[in-house]
Amino acid sequence: MYRSGAVMAWNVFKFCTALRGLGSIMILLVLGVVGVSYYAVVISNYGPGLAAGGLDSLIAFFVLALFHFLLVMLLWSYFSVVFTDPGTVPPNWRPAADEERGDNDPLTASEFPSDTENGRIRFCRKCNQLKPPRCHHCSVCGRCVLKMDHHCVWVVNCVGALNYKNFLLFLFYTFLETSVVTLSLLPHFIQFFSDGEIPGTPGTLATTFLAFVLNLAFALSVMGFLILHISLVCANTTTIEAYEKKSSPKWHYDLGRKRNFEQVFGMDRKFWFIPGYSEEDLRRMPALRGFEYPTKPDLDAQEL
């Protein structure tokens, strides 16, 4: 019996290790899809169309301008998720109320802030330290992550408090970019099933066909993820919390759709569509730093 448990623990560890290695392959896959799409749209089809003159040149210019803008925003958001730490609990972290009291008068167990229904202190046995509200331990990264949503192999990183907005923008711009590529290549894809002669070399035709199929598949799959995360943002919850709160009729972090949106994207509209926050938002909104989150009772008390 003991031997079986030991083998199961070893397999889980190997699985987590495999996920770390898989992430690097996923980055290459993303860049590969971008490369194939760039070759099909810019080099094979619409780039040469700029010299055609008339309406064809205007259409080619519009498609290429939109394609490059969305591509820049997609890559900016993507690598912001990859290289931004999702938020880590500092060593020997304590709640702000406990730090204010000092070592001579620490908080008792019943006074520690908690986001559980039974009021227990949130403590991570693997990290051997207290956990801030909405924090969870990631078995792949081997650490506690602030407001953890999930570990994403596509970005070789956890998605948490400090890079969740970047992740949502990555989904958003990926959906727009893949949709633009799909629609722009649709007329060329339809030609494959026509009786007439198709212009182009076998290599360019194969690239166009592959780019269309890949981008259509990505657009449909990313659309599903985007809809899911929009619903999570509207309810001010993460993927993990959405599963955990199924038994709880009320979610005390739900502040209303407008304030829930601001908890992720900030209040400065100029920064809503770029991966980053204004200094003013970071100063006045502690939730963006991942340690403190307003709750519905707190909001009601402020309005009174």
Rank of each mutant, 00 (worst) to 15 (best):
F79H: 08
D103T: 15
P187Q: 05
L176M: 12
L70Q: 04
L183R: 08
R122S: 13
W154L: 09
H68Y: 07
N128W: 08
G102H: 07
M148D: 07
Y173I: 03
S114W: 00
D56Y: 00
P106F: 04
V145S: 06
L64T: 05
N118K: 00
V155N: 04
L71M: 06
V81R: 01
E100G: 09
T178I: 00
T88P: 08
C135A: 12
R143D: 10
F193S: 09
S114M: 00
K131G: 15
G54F: 14
G54R: 13
F69H: 04
A109I: 10
L130D: 11
T174K: 00
L130I: 15
G160W: 05
F189D: 08
D85F: 11
H188R: 12
L74P: 01
W93C: 11
E117N: 01
A109H: 10
F62N: 08
Y78A: 08
P95L: 12
V159G: 04
C138K: 02
V140R: 00
C141I: 04
L71Q: 02
M148E: 11
P113R: 02
W154C: 11
L183D: 12
L186M: 05
N92T: 12
F175P: 02
V181G: 09
P187G: 04
R120F: 08
L64P: 04
V156G: 01
F172G: 12
W154Y: 13
N166R: 12
Q129K: 14
P187T: 03
F193E: 07
Y173G: 00
A96C: 11
L70V: 00
F61Q: 03
A97S: 14
C152S: 12
L70K: 00
G160H: 10
V72G: 05
H151F: 13
E117P: 05
V145I: 15
I59P: 06
L71G: 02
D149R: 14
S77C: 15
T178V: 02
L146P: 15
E100K: 10
P113W: 00
P95I: 12
G102F: 10
N104K: 07
V140Q: 01
E99G: 08
D115T: 12
L146R: 10
D56S: 07
F167D: 02
V181S: 06
P187V: 01
